[in-house]
Amino acid sequence: MENKTREVWVFIEQRNGKPADVSLELLSKGRKLADTLNGVLKSVVLGHNVKNIAEETSKYGADSVLLIDHPELEKYRPLPYSRMMNKLVNEHKPRIVLFGATVIGRGLAPRVASNTVSGLTADCTDLQISDVTYLKKEYQELLLQIRPAFGGNIIATIITPDNPVQMATVREGVMELHELDAPNPVKIEEIPYIPDTTDDLVKIIEQYREESKVNLKGSPIIVAGGYGLGSKDNFKLIHDLAETIGGEVAGSRAAVDAGFVSPDRQIGQTGVTVRPKLIFSIGISGAIQHRAGMQDSNKIIAINPDPEAPIFEIAHYGIVGNAEDVIPNFIELFKHKLK
């Protein structure tokens, strides 16, 4: 089922009149993919009074916008959104559709993939265009959907060779944002909203925001601890070091699962992706899914008693030792030097 269109679409998620960061990051990535395909990048904007968002997407590379603006779409609800997206995708058969791997994107993208019989890969950490030979057949310009798999212990490249539409979700912070210096004027195609009796099956009664005080993405120094710390009590060492050097506390997935640290501080493929000036990785073995969320950090200091731990292979400085010994020494010496 060859797809002749050269359209790359990005679903633009918006809340309260503001586009989600991840959607803009995906536009930057989508621009590159569209260029490789000699194609066009379209943003898909659903909402109410969101023409400004539609216009803004050109700053991140969109050539044109598919806009559905209607009061019924003011807040995301699964059925009106998926119904309209299904219709757009079925009618236009874009080659690629990208969604943020947010609560909204993870509810919407699978429905659209299911309805349009498209391939969908979750939480990709990289997307590329390449010719592929699969089962002795040649495929041109497929989307390589690259993601850690199996609990993050291997890297898998997923393809959608025989279905026309290739879809992927990507987490916030994974793709880099590029604002264009001189964006082209954007072409907006307004599409009418068609109401349906199913729209009100889910009604929003109340929303409350609990803005997280944690800002891992914006923190220049991060101290991350893993399961290797052994206990929540021992994890206090991570807090002590972070406090001493002015960093944010983070954890690996295993540390979060073990209850050492809260889920909003999880770094990795299924957590936050960070690029700080300095990151300490303490008691973290360094599974791929974790490294995917921090390997672009400017300086990595790994502390682990196991000299074979994979984290040392990406670290700039490695200390083979126990956190209980190394951290108190580090804190004491650091305080002394700052005097």
Binding site: A113, T121, A149, V320
Partner: peptide
Amino acid sequence: PTKVHKVESVVLSGGEAVN
């Protein structure tokens, strides 16, 4: 629709950590 094209354990860039 989705197929696994390749599975690999990652070749790490480093090995240059200062010990």
